[in-house]
Write a protein that binds this DNA or RNA. Structure first.
Length: 109
DNA sequence: CATTTGACAGGCG
DNA sequence: TCGCCTGCCAAAT
């Protein structure tokens, strides 16, 4: 895999696409895995552009397990619906069982 | 072409 | 223990 030819965004998408079903992760973990721990914002911004990509952006939340990006999805609670559909317990845009569904790329990959 | 903003996180006071 | 400040890249204005 020629990461040099891939933009930061594309590398983010590549990681997000590897998130297992029913699992979630946070922006910082992805950034850290890519070697840019202080660029969590870029991961978030990459998600903003992920609408045109085949990326399960609903599996990426902030470090509090809060669905900060739900406003970028269709409808009012699509992101929450998708997560609950995968077995993730979400209440008021907040993942309750974060410890159970959390997926760390630096550990799993 | 230059400036501002944005799905965040962690370090410091 | 709580809150403010900085770092990072890309896209939009």
């Amino acid at each position: 895999m020629k990461a040099e030819t891939l933009s930061f965004f594309e590398r983010v998408y590549d990681v997000v696409r590897q998130i297992p079903y029913g699992r979630v992760t946070n922006y910082g973990a992805i950034a850290k895995y890519l070697g840019a721990a202080k660029s969590a914002r870029l991961v978030g911004y990459a998600m903003n552009a992920s609408h045109t990509k085949d990326v399960p952006a609903h599996r990426v939340v902030n470090r509090n397990g809060l669905l900060t990006g739900k406003h970028h999805f269709e409808g009012t609670n699509l992101m929450q619906q998708l997560l609950e559909n995968e077995g993730v317990v979400v209440e008021d845009n907040q993942i309750l069982n974060l410890d159970e569904v959390y997926w760390d790329p630096t550990k799993e990959l």
